[in-house]
Design a protein around this nucleic acid. Structure first.
Lengths: 347, 347
DNA sequence: AGTTAGCACTCATAAAAGGTGAGTGCTAAC
DNA sequence: GTTAGCACTCACCTTTTATGAGTGCTAACT
């Protein structure tokens, strides 16, 4: 059976209507609402064909039709036109970028917030993570008589603090010397992966400051471990409650609880190296409890690390709008991060 | 009418049963389940009296009785016996405390998590905040050719980082000099509250490093502002979905959305200087959408700042268990924080 | 006077019965 | 190939009809 132009027009009408109303749509409605110049009976015949092609389904015999996952897939891959951003959307994006973004985690949090507000769907963002993280620099700073803070800078330019407690805090000069010694050590060895014994041996060289050096080593290891872990920011998780398809508490619970599991989020945003926007529709999703949802996601780059932004909505989400907004936001983020990077490395 | 011993026994039976089942309870059920040695008819008469006293209510004419807010209030104030902790609960608490807690925010997050897991209710914790926060010490640490991190230590012992970007990073010696100068300045003046002009004048004294000093000043002001703001940690917000009284999506939505509003949480945990556990029942709650909930809350101390821990559940929550667990946890936290403090200040 | 058995009454809830209408598929005529 | 017409389906709504848990009242019992 050939998917002629008319069939496609009808499929589009069904999808548009269903996205807007969440109600199955019948032949008469299409005939009245969309001036396709054919009668409801003809539409009925065409719909019968579309159903045979697996693009639409009937929830029950005497109901209208609803797009199937396959129908959405066709729409998304071949029919969807990208939408212009509205003034509001452009404005929100501009504000996001204009805000003085110094910390990348802050930018990511804000991005999640703005996206979920613009789309009314749920947004999840991962911080950019590359393969391996190394601490490249440490510095000890005195806090009070019994604590020193160890500031760690990673090669991914993340800065972490770690408080060390000690009986007697060395003076300023000594702290600097310890910092310097440790930094030199790190140039030669990867502290996070040497053996216990080797590390112990190295620490001996710190003499009376062995215990502090040990604290630094622990901080380095902990930081590397923490940074290796992917960090997620979700926003607008409760937005899903606004959609009639989640009016059932059990379904809503399934969705909300899915977002409490980190592994689920990892599957959800699972790295796909593509530069393009990816769309996962309904049943194509792995995690149970997201089978009625779709995800529009995109990667962004920071140095040679990659992060992912995903927008999750009901299967009948507005793909066109979501793609437009996500596209725009990723472009902006890439620009901002590129500028940041160039500023760091170049002149 | 006198609230005799038998009436109290019946009220307790009603509360216990309702807490367990969430179903209105009738006279016959009480007669059968609790061996009070009286017939259902007698219980019926007593229940009629309890209703007149406003301690129980009938959802509708032919239904059993349900405790009223007033009934819970009486129970909580006069009848409730504190419960022994179970092995599991004691174990979880021990683990929470045993974990090496260096950062107070981490401890608070963990506390919220443990409490919500133990009780199956929602937990909200505020970080300890006193009246005013001052930055008492700063230290510049080089990151790369174009950025320096400014480490700030507040008098509440919170440590924050702030990245400063500059065309040419001064060398190590110079950074230390700038840090020293700024620290001296802060001993004399409260940077966060001097006027624009005064600040500008001060910055002049930094000569070629004026712009960096300006960055530090901004970091100080921002940190003070951020720290002044109360920080909340919530855990187990979705737990509420498990309770039949929130099977209605609208109700669940109301609850969940309430937790997205910071002002609501402030009202919720509104400071009450009491050292004792406080219980706010159902309609006694200010925020709309929590009228069907109760809150068990307690304050804990860190230096002369106070934080609050609140457990929020349906009105028919298990007050006795919640109070026991909360009590134990607060005692533990106070101990840990006291030790931390003494360690800092004493010998 | 307090307690209890008995009974009429209420009313939410569940199940059954009937009606409505949006929607379909098929057929025959255009 | 298109369309009008019609029989048929079936979710959903409304009304009706049990059902039963629970009450309040009364009269008898201790």
């Amino acid at each position: 059976m050939i998917l002629n132009d008319r069939k496609i027009k009808i499929l589009e009408a069904i999808i548009n209507d269903y996205v807007a109303t969440a109600e199955p749509i019948g032949s008469r409605t299409i005939a009245k609402k969309y001036n396709l110049g054919i009668s409801s009976a003809t539409i009925r015949n065409e719909m019968s064909d579309l159903e045979e092609l697996g693009l639409i389904v009937q929830p029950h015999t005497s109901a209208g039709r609803v797009p199937s996952d396959k129908g959405y897939r066709l729409y998304v891959d071949r029919l969807m036109r990208s939408r212009e951003l509205t003034g509001d959307e452009a404005q929100a994006l501009k504000e996001l970028v204009d805000r003085n973004v110094e910390h990348i985690d802050y930018l990511m949090k804000q991005t999640a917030k703005v996206l979920s507000m613009l789309t009314n769907y749920t947004t999840v963002v991962t911080e950019p993570k590359g393969r391996e993280v190394h601490v490249k620099h440490i510095q000890l700073v005195p806090v009070d008589e019994h604590s020193v803070v160890c500031v760690l800078v990673t090669d991914t330019k993340v800065i972490k603090n770690h408080v060390l407690r000690c009986r007697n805090v060395p003076d300023f000069e000594q702290l600097n010397r310890i910092s310097l010694m440790f930094n030199m050590l790190m140039e030669k060895y990867d502290i996070a992966s040497v053996s216990e014994e080797e590390l112990d041996e190295m620490l001996e060289s710190f003499g009376p400051f062995k215990s502090i050096a040990g604290g630094i080593a622990r901080a380095v290891i902990k930081t590397v471990m923490e940074e290796q872990e992917v960090q997620f920011y979700a926003s607008g998780v409760n937005n899903i409650l606004e959609f009639p398809e989640f009016n059932d508490v059990e379904k809503a619970k399934g969705f909300l609880q899915a977002f409490e599991q980190k592994e689920m989020l990892i599957t959800l945003l699972g790295q796909n190296p593509s530069d393009k926007i990816q769309i996962v529709i309904g049943g194509e999703n792995k995690p149970e409890g997201l089978k009625d949802c779709s995800i529009v996601r995109a990667n962004y780059k920071y140095g040679n690390s990659t992060g992912t932004i995903g927008v999750i909505g009901p299967t009948r989400m507005n793909y066109s709008q979501t793609v437009s907004v996500l596209n725009a936001i990723v472009k902006n983020i890439n620009n901002v991060l590129k500028a940041l990077e160039d500023g760091d490395e170049g002149g």
